[in-house]
Nucleic acid binder design. Structure first.
Length: 786
DNA sequence: TTAGGATTGG
């Protein structure tokens, strides 16, 4: 029975209702006024038998009498309960119970004249998201005898007890309730039909994705999602199969709650203020999902401040609207700021002064910090409706690099293109949103006088002239500073300005002197990739779990005893004592028919776990995980490392490797002093060795222009081997410190150190477009920096 | 009904 005993209260008169609900007096009830977030309370004085309506719907009617205003003429009201809720209520209702009703519809009562009750009646049902709470004396509902005092009451909720379906158990044609973590979303936008639309992709710990298409005529009724990682609870969402996948779509009684997904943040639901049930159990679910999401969802979205805008990329901006203006039928201008200054010249969209809405004084004061964002097509209608001063998150703004005919230096244009790809759109953030609170505090702290200086500062750097002696002095000081990177070759070349580099055709090579405005990825471990020099492919370094899984799978094949103890290796085998009784075989490769010292020994292991393999690498020179076939030992799947040496896992390229029999290693073993060099082992085994490499994008500026240059570095630039960074926290710290020297966080452009770099330009062409890219080479971090 | 994730135009 979906009746839930929520709490037993002793010596306590107030009820644990959702805190947003407020009591409404019977005499204030009238048709057409807003009663969301209101409840009425009364004593059951009459109930009618449970009946079925013509369409089979259960129907139950009770009469509640108000307790506050006994003298009032209209002191009682009819409550009409429909559907499952009618059945549930009929089971527990007793005369004299106190009922609390929320989420009701107020309808003019056709029987008011006859029964002399309230002029309206209330209608409630599960579909409308209604809730009924019932207060009874304990001894009335406990069947088991117990000592109860009169002051002890049980609090019974006749709100349905919801069942939530994990995303991997959804079935076509059902209507379900579910929880999920937002992996992708499109903020509500105007659809081509009559409604607003929002598309939301969820994941949950079952690791199944569900994309939901949600419609509502009122955008406020759609989930209030502000960022990836938010958690939602959907009630009554319809599941359908579409293109072979499950899909969610709004059904009649759809309702949603949205929560901040940050671990530790207050659990406050965002909802369009309908009545909702939210109790301790739900609270726990949110906390659990937050913890799961923290390690399973990447929220490092492209959010950015104007100060860290990257030309040619897309980003999400949290900002305040300062001005807006009509441009033409298909585009609309938004003028926004976030308190930081975009380091590049930005465009100004010309509009008629009469079309510009916003505080004139503020528009003038903020002119150096404000940027123009031109929004198109389907975003225009929403943009027009925005209120000046409101806080916005604009998703997937395109920072387009462009230059006008009469300009030497390129500028940045901000476009919100038409369509909703990649969640492109505009969301209004409420004042209580934590990001808005932070932004407001920051905006209040911005010294506008300082921003005027910033303007003169950047224009000074742009045209390379110096207005007075102080500027000249500080400039000289900077020039005298040693650069934080140096060239390892080509010292005799002269510097080229970035403007010249950008305006020249590729391919060419240049010596440049520039500042590192920003770099990507900011999380340095994300910069490590595996590179195949044969097919030139790049791939992510596989996760340790993948290796674990492959080891587990290969441990299911028992070692083949016929392959043990050959002329070139000795084998040892044992069975683990645990329940699984795994068989492990280790083959120690001999040299001159003798075993060598462990630190010079290569061994092969069958049936080991990740932990066991790691332990062996601590003791022995090399470890190669293998499995038995009928005729020979063989390497595992190439998603696993084929060799472990020291702290480094060596991987082979799946595409370019052609594994040879393991016994090829015997030739290496026969060498006078086998080096067990990974490159050589790879070659002997027919493996195309993947190299660990740092891939980063540096945004370089020099006062004449800006460009993005890629760093592709095995070891030379940072003087840190890319192969060791992932397993060595000391090296990670060292690299972070180096980056902090090259690009000190929080500094103004003028205070950043200079880098000397050698870069080459090259062409990237495909059928559609042509782009010139830049790569840093023959450059290293200066000795005194590392 | 609409959209059904998957940028780059003005």
């Amino acid at each position: 029975m979906p009746v839930q005993l929520l709490k037993i209260m002793k010596e306590q008169s107030e009820t644990p209702l959702p805190s947003h609900l407020q009591k409404e007096d019977l005499k204030h009830l009238q048709e057409g006024s807003d009663h969301t977030n209101k409840y009425i309370q009364g004593i059951v004085v009459l109930s009618y038998p449970l009946t079925k309506l013509g369409d089979g719907t259960d129907f139950f009617k009770i009469v509640l009498q108000g307790v506050d205003d006994l003298c009032s003429r209209i002191n009682s009201i009819n409550i009409l309960i429909y559907g499952k809720m009618a059945e549930d209520c009929a089971k527990v209702t007793r005369h004299g119970d106190t009922f609390i009703v929320a989420g009701f519809k107020v309808i003019k009562s056709p029987t008011a004249r006859e029964d002399g009750r309230h002029g309206c009646h209330l209608e409630v049902s599960e579909e409308d998201g209604s809730a009924i709470y019932c207060l009874q004396f304990c001894n009335q509902i406990y069947t088991k005898p117990r000592t109860a005092t009169a002051s002890e009451t049980a609090f019974v909720s006749i709100a349905p007890k919801y069942v939530y379906t994990p995303l991997n158990q959804l079935k076509d044609g059902t209507i379900v309730n579910l929880y999920g973590v937002v992996k992708f979303f499109k903020p509500p936008y105007v659809s081509k039909g009559t409604d607003f639309c929002s598309v939301v992709t969820l994941v949950d710990p079952s690791n199944v994705k569900l994309t939901c298409t949600l419609f509502n005529g009122n955008p406020d009724s759609l989930p209030k999602i502000y960022k990836v990682g938010d958690i939602v609870r959907f009630h009554r969402i319809k599941i359908r199969e579409y293109n072979g996948q499950m899909q969610g779509i709004t059904s009649g009684g759809f309702a949603s709650l949205t929560f901040d997904g940050t671990v530790g943040a207050p659990v406050v639901p965002r909802t369009s203020s309908k009545v909702y049930t939210f109790m301790d159990e739900e609270h726990k679910t949110i906390e659990e999902l937050r913890v799961w999401a923290a390690s399973n969802i990447s929220v490092s979205g492209p959010a950015a401040k104007l100060s860290s805008v990257q030309p040619m990329l897309f980003f999400d901006l949290t900002c305040q609207l300062v001005g807006k203006a009509k441009v033409d039928g298909s585009s609309f201008l938004l003028k926004v700021w976030d308190g930081t200054k975009c380091p590049y010249p930005t465009w100004r969209v010309p509009v008629e002064a009469k079309d510009l809405e916003g505080e004139r004084v503020l528009l003038h004061q903020l002119r150096n910090l404000m940027v123009d964002i031109l929004v198109y097509d389907n975003h225009v209608q929403l943009a027009k409706s925005l209120k000046i001063g409101s806080f916005l998150r604009i998703y997937s703004i395109h920072a387009k690099q462009a230059s006008a005919d009469n300009e030497d230096v390129s500028h940045i244009e901000f476009h919100l293109h038409g369509g909703t790809c990649y969640g492109r759109g505009i969301g209004v953030l409420p004042e209580n949103n934590p990001d808005v609170k932070e932004l407001k505090t920051f905006l209040e702290s911005v010294d506008l006088a300082d921003s005027q200086n910033m303007e003169s500062m950047s224009s000074m750097e742009l045209d390379g002239t110096f207005s007075d002696f102080t500027d000249l002095e500080s400039h000289l000081q900077r020039c005298q500073q040693l650069p934080v990177t140096v060239l390892t070759d080509h010292q005799d070349l002269n510097n080229t300005e970035l403007k010249t580099v950008i305006n020249s055709t590729a391919p060419q090579q240049y010596r440049i002197r520039a500042k590192l405005r920003t770099y990507k990825p900011q999380k340095l471990h994300q910069s490590v990739k595996l590179h195949c020099s044969k097919c030139n492919s790049l791939q992510e370094v596989p996760d340790g779990d993948v290796f674990d899984f492959i080891l587990q799978r290969s441990a299911m094949t028992a070692p083949n005893p016929e392959l043990h103890n050959t002329s070139w290796y000795d084998s040892v085998m044992w069975t683990t004592q645990d329940q699984k009784q795994r068989e492990i075989a280790i083959h120690f490769v001999k040299h001159d028919e003798m075993l060598r010292q462990p630190e010079d020994t290569l061994l092969m292991i069958e049936g080991g776990t990740l932990k066991e393999v790691w332990k062996l690498t601590k003791r022995f020179k090399c470890v190669i995980p293998v499995r038995s076939t009928e005729v020979d030992l063989e390497l595992l799947d190439l998603s696993a490392p084929f060799l472990l040496q020291g702290n480094v896992k060596y991987y082979g390229c799946k595409q370019c490797s052609a594994p040879k029999p393991i016994k090829s290693l015997s030739f290496m073993a026969a060498e006078q002093q086998p080096s067990w060099d990974p490159t050589e082992i790879a070659q002997v085994l027919g493996i195309e060795l993947l190299q660990y490499v740092f891939i980063m994008k540096f945004t370089l500026v020099d006062g004449t222009g800006a460009l993005n240059a890629y760093l592709f570095d095995y070891e030379k630039f940072f003087q840190i081997p890319a192969s060791e960074i992932l397993t060595n926290s000391f090296l990670q710290e060292k690299m972070q410190m180096t980056m902090n020297m090259l690009c000190p966080p929080g500094r103004k452009l003028g205070d950043l150190p200079w880098l000397e770099c050698f870069i080459k330009s090259y062409n990237v062409r495909d059928a559609m477009k042509h782009q010139v890219c830049y790569q840093i080479f023959d450059t290293t971090v200066a000795e005194d920096v590392v």
